[in-house]
Structures are given as C-alpha cells and as structure tokens.
Design a binder for these strands. Structure first.
Lengths: 224, 224
DNA sequence: AATGTTTTATAGTGAACGATATGAAACCTA
DNA sequence: TAGGTTTCATATCGTTCACTATAAAACATT
C-alpha cells in the first residue's frame, strides 16, 4: 500500500518513459482550470466548462487530476501559493503593520488583474454550496485560517518587541485583516477598480495603534 | 397590458375568493426558502432542496413564486429588509460613525444567529456562479451597492456638519464598511463566534478620525 | 346538489450533471 | 518491425437538474 503511493508520487514528478506522451502541458491546463474556478466557482463550474477552458477531453482530465474535487484542490493550492514563502514574507517585514499593509495591497492588485477574474478565489469559489462540497469548503476555510494565524503570530511577535502596545488584542486585528481582504474581493466582484481597492487597504490600516517611529533602538522606550 | 399587471398585483395582496385555498402560508414557506438559500447558496440549492425545506411540492412552488430565480429574489428582498427603513436608521443615527458601528454590530449578531445559517446571504449566496445566474448576482450586487451609497451619503452629511474632518474621503470609508461587513460573513462561515465578530466590528471603527466630542454646538468649531 | 375555479399530488419532460467503458492511436523498448 | 504501455477521441453511463402536463381534490357560488 505504502509502496504504491510512493510509486505514484514518483511517477507524478518523473513521468514514465513508455507509452503515448501527454498531448498537453499539465501545468498549463491546471492554470486554466484555476482561472475557470476563480471566475465561476467550484460547484457552479461544470466538467464541461473545464474541458472547454482547458482544451482537454473529460477522460484526459480525470486521468490527469483524478476528479473534480481533486482538480479544484490542486487549483486552489496553486492560487494560494507556497505557504512557507508567505510565512517568510510576513516574518521578513519590518513590522506586523507593514506585513498586513503589504498583504492588503497585494490583494488589491490581485483582485483587479487584467488577465484574471475579479476578486479572490478563496473568497468566492466556495463561499457556500451543497453538502456534497463540504470537504472543499473546509479546505478553503483551512487556507484562510492559515493566513490569519500567520498574521496573528506576527502581531504577537511585534508586541514582544514593543512595536505594538502591550495591551493590543492580536486576535481581532488578525480577524479584521482577513475580513477586509475577503471583503475587498466582494468589492472587486461588484466592479471596484484597483484604485478604490488600494484606498480601502490604506484606510483599513488606520485603526492600528502604531507607536511613532524614531530610531529602531528607541522603539521599546515608547511603551514602558 | 398595464391593466393585466394591476390585476395581478391586486390578486397577490387580495387572493381570490373562489377555488381551492392554499394549503400553506406563503410568508412562512418564503422564509424557509430564504433560510435554505442563505445556507446553501442560489445555484447550489436545488428545487428538490427547496421543496423539502418548504414542505411544498414543486408545482405549488412554481404557482406561488414563478421560478427559482424569482423565488430567490423575493427571498433576498426579505433578507435585506426594507431599504427605506435602513435609510431612516442611518439618517437618524447621531453620527455616520455611530450608524456604521451600529450596522456592523447588527451584522455580527445576524451572522451568528442561533436559528439562522452563519454569515450573510448577500455575501455568500451568489458570490460567484455560472453565466446563467448573472442576473441574480447583479441583483445581489445592487443590494450591496445601495447600502454602500447610503453610508457614503451619511458620511458626506457629517462632513457638512463638521462631524468629520473636511478632508475626509467618503468613498473609501463607505467601501471599507461594506468590505468589513462582507468579510465578517466569511469569518462567521469559518466558525467565528459572536464575540469575535463584535470585536472585529469595534476594531474596524478605530480608523475613523472622529473629532473629540464636546457640546454639540461646539463641534463645528474644532474644524475651521 | 351542480358548476366554476384554483390547488393539489403524481408522474414525467428533455437537458445537463459528474464520471467512464471502449478501442484506436502514438509513443518507447527490444 | 513487433510488443508493451499509455493517452487519445467517441460515445455513452445512471443521476439529478429546473420545470410542467394531467387529473383528482377542495373550496365558493348558485
């Protein structure tokens, strides 16, 4: 059993040498599937929609990706990007405030891309649905929660460094950051352009009680 | 043509005296339809789901509500409530800040009701979908935009009264209010409880540059 | 009780859904 | 070139979709 799984994983990265070769680029058609789910949602995108967008017949789709759910999950992971890289970005930012501001600005750009659907795949593709798709919704929710928790951890780090008041409540700030980001997706879907979304991102950061910055070594002095 | 419409509207409020009477309360089953759409979304709720939840057979559903789209739109209008009443609430509030804070607190309660699905119907029921449902998504978007515009108008009123700095930009504040509200729906769907949502609502209001309040007559003096 | 009107329950419409069985086609190895 | 392996295009599979034709049932009126 274990051997089988290992063999399959090996084949996924190193395709067999024999047999008829794939007539499509797996990465390319996965990207097209991602865009289709992004545009039309998980349950509300049909296999027929996907095969049309990907330029691949149904049997090929199932052979390459398993089924509709597995295809979506793979597309979602591609959309969300590498979580390790995100964690590093958040950690490397000068402050939690900077990290969240940068994330919201990136979201404003991502949600208003000219070659991508408006809004956020994580916010719109599985906002709701039938009981059959509960697993998919849980997977999307887990992705959101992972981002939220990274933000909260970074806020706690800043509190320890005196970069935020010691009586700051990290959880509502992290929740608010996610809420604003996902809410920006709704605005984008409703037609808000890049400028408006960037303004929302900036306005959302005004609520943070950030101490006035002087020299880095003096920062902790401002909040004894 | 006009006569026909008038006649139909009259019949809708004053049912005919003859014929077999309705075996269900139209208001009651509409409420159950609203809850079903709220829980499972527009396209991802089937007629079969609706008839089961409403306790009404398909032919009765179609006779009473027309079709699935019309049923949803009627359910959505019930969810959204009377727009005139909302406008009055926003107008009657002491300040724009108070009006938005109250709206976000109401949202926190609504999204975490014990007898209703988590989150917001306007945010989740038609976040995305197939081209067939474009009309429904446009109707939901129009509902959101109406609320947003009420908030912006109230902000402009407060600026005129000196209740907000004269260099305030009303649009981003109104956009942010909607973004936070719709984002709170995502948090609620992900399991956030009432306390967490209320904390998000309070935190979101911290970004407003509200002049310190003294006597009402003195307010305008603070921003010459 | 007979008639007219409306709603009821039953059963079923064609179309689209997610997913596959099948055999020919296209490659590598030997 | 022959054998082995994998993917290809075609043609579906049974189920569910939104929706409705039909006729019996339940009322008011006469």
């Amino acid at each position: 059993m274990t051997l089988l799984v290992v063999t399959m994983k090996h084949e996924a990265t190193h395709p067999r040498k024999t047999g008829r070769p794939l007539s499509f680029d797996r990465d390319d058609v996965l990207n097209k599937a991602m865009l289709t789910f992004w545009q039309s949602g998980y349950e509300t995108t049909s296999i027929s929609d996907l095969t049309a967008a990907m330029g691949v017949t149904a049997p090929s789709l199932y052979a390459a990706f398993g089924n509709k759910q597995q295809l979506f999950l793979e597309a979602m992971r591609r959309y969300a990007g590498d979580p390790v890289a995100l964690e590093q970005d958040i950690t490397a930012a000068p402050t939690a405030h900077d990290a969240v501001a940068a994330m919201l600005r990136r979201a404003a750009l991502l949600y208003t891309g000219e070659t991508t659907p408006p809004g956020c795949l994580l916010a719109s593709a599985a906002a709701t649905g039938s009981p059959d798709a509960a697993e998919v919704r849980a997977a999307v929710a887990a992705e959101r929660r992972a981002i939220r928790d990274m933000i909260q951890r970074r806020i706690e780090v800043d509190m320890g460094r005196g970069l935020l008041p010691s009586d700051t409540d990290p959880a509502p700030l992290a929740d608010l950051a996610i809420a604003v980001m996902q809410g920006m997706s709704v605005l984008a879907r409703d037609g808000a352009d890049r400028e408006r979304l960037l303004a929302v991102a900036e306005t959302a950061m005004l609520g943070w009680r950030v101490p006035a910055r002087t020299h880095p070594t003096d920062i902790s002095m401002h909040h004894p």
